[in-house]
């Protein structure tokens, strides 16, 4: 499955448009990471635990989007966008969406 945030694929034609597909993932951090993050809040610097957490949830959201695209019979998802929102204290939602298409 080709996933891209371009609107077209060089050298290939889109033969069928299959609509918007999306995937989302809501994650909360666990306490251990929270304590480390609390320390980092004094010293400043990268919060590696959070970076990994968000990376993992982004991968999961992408996977869900991919499953949805496969279900409608697409072989590529174009114009993919990421979005993040903190819906509650300590939990972040990662949202990925794109256009499912069939390429020749």
């Amino acid at each position: 499955m080709l996933i891209s945030n371009l609107e077209m694929v060089p050298g290939k034609r889109v033969i069928e448009h299959l609509g918007l597909v999306q995937g989302s993932s809501v994650r909360a951090k666990h306490v251990g990471r929270d304590i480390m993050a609390g320390l980092k809040n004094i010293f400043g610097g990268e919060l590696k635990g959070y970076t990994e957490l968000l990376q993992e949830s982004r991968e999961e959201a992408m996977q869900r989007m991919q499953l949805q695209a496969e279900a409608v019979g697409a072989n590529a998802v174009l114009n993919v966008r990421f979005s993040t929102s903190s819906i509650a204290q300590g939990a972040a939602e990662i949202y990925v969406y794109g256009t499912a298409v069939r390429l020749e």
């Binding site: 891209s4 371009l6 004094i42 990268e46 970076t51 968000l54």
Partner: peptide, 18 residues
């Protein structure tokens, strides 16, 4: 047509100090 493509990304969480 000879370009393959792949989505790449990089993320970071940074905190400010006290």
């Amino acid at each position: 047509p000879y370009y393959d493509q792949a989505l790449v990304s990089g993320n970071v969480v940074v905190s400010v100090d006290y």
